[in-house]
């Protein structure tokens, strides 16, 4: 059984594209993350990437860097992220992907991290700076703990690399829509269609497309090609702007609803 695979199968049978939301665990504070995840789920989000805060997030743009700083001010470390996952699980079975830079996982002990994450209700893991070349032992550890693995594919990836990414990814493949760091963009990269088609030639695993997608019309365009759309910075921006507001959860839920709307029956 796998919540991630089951979710993709269920959506496929309904002709829907998945909406995946990224949140930094502990942003704006550790006691709010589970509530925000529940709000996202009410708004129609199908899967969550739960970000582990890291001091030096070199793949992230300013928006998510600041989110990590806010979480780190609350001393949110890996055990605390797993506490948050357990809290989410008290009311939800939404698939959770742990989204982390490698170092906090290594410091905790990679195998110990994998088994404790699985026990806390995490379903999969994506380590931003874990390349397929370095993945072998770590993928084994994640799989033997019962976790799915997700790797990044990029516009610069060669065919050989796309094949390796596909081989090591079990939950889904995360296709980075453009060269660059995370963050909202005015226009969607022109190369997404080409990359999706190149990947579909080498894999039958679900494809999620992310980086730079923040608006319903962008989600709709990507949703026609991919199995899932990932939105991160747009949610993080709402958290940043309305951290203290009483209607933060309602705003998050509303953004999720607007992004999910064009993804229903989109395929």
């Amino acid at each position: 059984m796998s919540r991630i695979r089951d979710k993709f199968a269920e959506l496929k049978s309904r002709g829907e594209t998945a909406l995946i939301a990224y949140l930094t665990a502990g942003d704006p504070s550790p006691d709010l993350t589970a509530r925000l995840v529940w709000a996202l789920e009410r708004g129609g989000v199908d899967m969550i990437e739960l970000g582990v805060p890291f001091s030096d997030p070199l793949a992230d743009g300013p928006r998510i860097q600041l989110a990590m700083d806010r979480a780190l001010k609350h001393h949110v470390n890996l055990p605390r992220v797993l506490d948050i996952a357990r809290e989410i699980r008290t009311r939800s079975s939404i698939p959770l992907v742990l989204f982390s830079y490698l170092n906090p996982l290594l410091r905790y002990g990679f195998e110990r991290c994998a088994s404790e994450a699985a026990a806390a209700g995490i379903d999969g893991c994506l380590a931003t700076d874990l390349t397929v070349e370095e993945a072998e032992d770590r993928v084994k550890a994640l799989h033997s703990a019962g976790l799915e693995t997700v790797f990044l594919a990029a516009p610069t990836s060669t065919l050989r690399r796309l094949e390796l990414v596909s081989r090591y990814s079990t939950g889904f493949i995360y296709l980075v829509s453009r060269t660059g760091v995370t963050g909202e963009q005015e226009a969607l990269s022109q190369s997404v269609a080409r990359m999706v088609s190149a990947l579909k030639d080498v894999t039958d695993k679900p494809l999620a497309v992310g980086f730079g997608i923040s608006r319903p019309e962008q989600a709709a365009a990507v949703g026609r090609m991919a199995d899932a759309v990932v939105v991160g910075s747009a949610f993080v921006r709402v958290i940043e702007e309305y951290a203290q507001a009483p209607d933060l959860e309602a705003r998050i839920e509303d953004l999720a609803r607007r992004l999910k709307e064009p993804l229903r029956a989109s395929q």
């Binding site: 070199l58 793949a59 490698l102 931003t128 700076d129 874990l130 390349t131 070349e133 370095e134 790797f151 990044l152 594919a153 990029a154 516009p155 610069t156 990836s157 060669t158 690399r161 990414v165 980075v176 060269t179 660059g180």
Partner: peptide, 22 residues
């Protein structure tokens, strides 16, 4: 061949940078 000096070194970067490093 992957840039390891014993257990150290290697390549730990976002996938986008792998092709340019190669």
């Amino acid at each position: 061949i992957l840039g390891h000096f014993g257990p150290y070194g290697g390549r730990f970067v976002p996938e986008t940078l792998m092709a340019p490093l190669e």
